[in-house]
Every structure is written in C-alpha cells, then in structure tokens.
C-alpha cells in the first residue's frame, strides 16, 4: 500500500517536471521564432535595391546603406589581415616552440579572460590607444577589433594544433627535418580548419560589434574606396543600425539592416558548422 502511494507520488512528480521542461523548451523556441519572424517581417519589405546600392542623400532625403556595407567589408578585411598573422603566429609559438609551460598556461588563461571582457571596454581602450593618435577612423576601429579578436584566433588555432598527431611531428623530425620545416609542412596544414573556424567566428563578432566601434570608428556614411575608407570615420552596418534607429528614428531602415545582419549571422554559423564537419570527416579518414 505504502509503496504504491509513494510510486504514485513519484510518478506525478516526474510528469510535472517533464511538463515544466517542455514548457521552457517551448518558450525558448517560441521566443527565437518570434524574434526571427518579427525582424524579418519588419525588415525584409524595407530592403530595396535602392537602399542597398546608394548612399544617403540630403537632397532627395533618401537613405542608402551602400557606404555602411562597404565600411563593414573594409573593417572585416583590415581586421582579419592584421589579426590572422598575429593570432596564428602566437598560437604556433605557444604550442610548438615555447618550452615554459607555466608561462604558456598564464597566456592561455589571459586570452580566455580577455574574450569575456565587455566590448565597450575595448572601445574605451581603443579610443585612447588609436583614435586619439590617428583620429576617429575605420582603421582605429579595425585595430580595436584586432585586440578583441586576437584571443579567439589564437585559441581556435591552438586547439586545432593540439589535434595534429604527435606521430606526424616525430616522423618528420626522424627524417632530419628542422623545427620550422616540421611546422610549415606537417603541423600548419593540419590546423587550417582551426584558422578558418577562428576567422568565421571573428567575422561574426565584427558584424555584431557596435559599442567598441562607436568609440573608435565613428558613424559617417561617406562612400569611399578601401584606402580612403580606412582613413576616414565610418559606420559599419551594426553601428548604422544604431544611428538610424536611435538618432534619426528611421525604423524601417534599421529593421532592414537588422534583417540583413540576421541572415548573415545564420549564414556564418552555418559556414562554421560546415567547415567543422568537413574537416572532422577528413581527419577520421
């Protein structure tokens, strides 16, 4: 008798817990779906060819986001161009060359911590370090983003360097190869996936960044080539979104940009998964 009532109680509890969990899953899914549909619904109708292909004009009072798109491309390119050699180089040094494991540990820990710091702090530091000397410009923004993304590139590269089998290194050393040759011919080809993954993650982060860039790169919408563009102040898409919504009350444009960013983010995540899968398959061969 006693046992039966106990098990009944237990069963009730189980059912309740299951229901609660289902509810929270449902709520989460509903929220995400709502956000997607709402942003796309508000944004997509506002995306026109004109919006994408022109710059804002005070004469016709029309808004175009081509400068912001280009600025985003410039800043992504400039950041990656600088952060890649630095991050990959640091990762190679730490995993392949550094002999003091304690120092390596400290640097890894610092990198881990750095990537958790709120981006507005990077913005503040970037302003003092770069904008004050070179002026508010995309390049100052890019340099700030370099500091922000350095830990990401370094860590993803390091992680994939660690998956290169030790036996490859031994094999190469055993044939009389020097350290650099081993790194270049056997180790580096094995960590391409980490580098690519790091790049994709960084691009995602750069696309989403606003706080750090407001401080350092400004928010102009001038149409420039890449060299002039980097030397001039400029808004990326995310910054432009903020400016149009907050300063000018142009919610249609803001939502159009939001929709574009959202689609790009989904694509980036998809690309990252694809790269990981591709290399996982090759590795298990």
């Amino acid at each position: 008798m006693l046992n039966q009532s106990l098990s009944k109680k237990r069963k009730g509890f189980e059912v309740l817990m299951k229901a609660l969990m289902l509810l929270s899953v449902g709520l989460t899914a509903a929220l995400v779906l709502f956000l997607l549909i709402y942003v796309l619904g508000q944004g997509v109708p506002n995306i026109t060819w004109e919006l994408l292909s022109t710059k804002p004009s005070y004469l016709t009072e029309k808004i175009g986001i081509l400068p912001d798109i280009l600025n985003t491309v410039y800043i992504v390119l400039a950041t990656l161009l600088i952060v890649l050699p630095l991050g990959v180089g640091a990762a190679i040094y730490l995993t392949e060359y550094a002999s003091n494991k304690k120092v390596v540990g400290i640097i890894e820990y610092a990198a881990e911590t750095l990537s958790g710091i709120p981006s507005i702090i990077y913005g503040l530091v970037g302003m003092l370090l770069f904008s004050n000397s070179m002026g508010t410009c995309l390049m100052a923004g890019a340099l700030t983003l370099v500091i922000m993304n350095l830990p990401t590139i370094m860590r993803t590269t390091q992680e994939s360097l660690k998956t290169v089998p030790q036996s490859y290194r031994e094999g190469a050393f055993g044939l009389g190869a020097g350290k650099w040759r081993v790194v270049r011919t056997v180790v580096l080809p094995g960590c391409v996936d980490g580098v690519i993954t790091g790049c994709i993650l960084s691009v995602g982060r750069i696309l989403g960044e606003s706080a750090a860039l407001l401080f350092t790169a400004g928010f102009a919408h001038a149409l420039n080539g890449i060299i002039d563009g980097l030397a001039a102040p400029g808004a990326t898409l995310t910054v432009a979104l903020y400016v149009y919504a907050k300063e000018q009350g142009e919610f249609g444009v803001a939502f159009a940009i939001a929709a574009i960013l959202m689609v790009l983010t989904v694509l980036i995540n998809f690309a990252a998964t694809l790269v990981q899968k591709h290399f996982a398959k090759r590795r298990s061969l």
Binding site: Y168, G171, F173, L175, G176
Partner: peptide, 16 residues
C-alpha cells in the same frame, strides 16, 4: 645525425 640514423616507429605514421 637523424639523416644518417633513420627511424621507423611502432605505429605506421605516414604523413597525410
């Protein structure tokens, strides 16, 4: 030295 004294390992380790 390692060119003169080569090595074959326990587990085959061809490069990829």
């Amino acid at each position: 030295l390692r060119k003169e004294i080569g090595m074959v390992f326990q587990k085959p380790n061809p490069f990829p």
